[in-house]
Design a protein around this nucleic acid. Sequence first.
DNA 1: CCAATATATGCCCGATATGACATATTGCCA
DNA 2: TGGCAATATGTCATATCGGGCATATATTGG
Lengths: 112, 112
Amino acid sequence: MEINKQKRLKARGWRVGSAEDFLGLSREEIEYIELKLLLGEHLTSRRRAKKLKQVELAELLQSSQSRVAKMEKGDSTVSLDLLIRALLALGATRRDLAGILSSVRTVARRPG
Amino acid sequence: MEINKQKRLKARGWRVGSAEDFLGLSREEIEYIELKLLLGEHLTSRRRAKKLKQVELAELLQSSQSRVAKMEKGDSTVSLDLLIRALLALGATRRDLAGILSSVRTVARRPG
DNA sequence: CCAATATATGCCCGATATGACATATTGCCA
DNA sequence: TGGCAATATGTCATATCGGGCATATATTGG
């Protein structure tokens, strides 16, 4: 687990601090978080592909711009449910979702 | 969409009745429900593969037998979140999940 | 066919996610 | 650099989810 990932996760609300340090996260927890980030990233690209702004997608989903922003960022207050329903609403099929899940998340990495 | 599926879905709490008939469900709604059923079925088989009873899995998940039963049946009060976390807790990886999603659900069918 | 065991269903109430709003931050282009 | 559009973040009330219990219904072994 590299430093960059740690930063990205710690950045948002993931209760990682205090007693239980980051490295104390169990495999499931990590996979779960990765899942969210992954789905969020794909939501962004699907939205962009349709030339929609967050506000417009929000309208489509009967939600709000702020919530869409949180979805795309994998905020801790957003459920997989919402994320998946959003993707479905943008036309993704079950197989598309499968493709997303099996894809490898590319994390920006500093040279060296 | 065959009769069997309709029955299975209507059986549980899916608000399908009254005004909006089953056929009125949108593609997303259908995919969403299928997703749950699919994940639920795989949860059952993973649990069985580990020779666990629902009570035992419940304990593992810090949940209750009744909730596990509902997960496995794709009850409407169960979120994808819970289902996926349960699968992760049983050792499934993101790729495993992807495999599940892309699999085709086999529905029992009467001969003839 | 009967117990015993496993699973399913219904309900309640406390926990958490959600939409909405206000506001801050970023990104873009002249 | 300024100014505007887009996105991000914080907070709150309400709606929905989740654990737990009671009980009904399967399923299994004798």
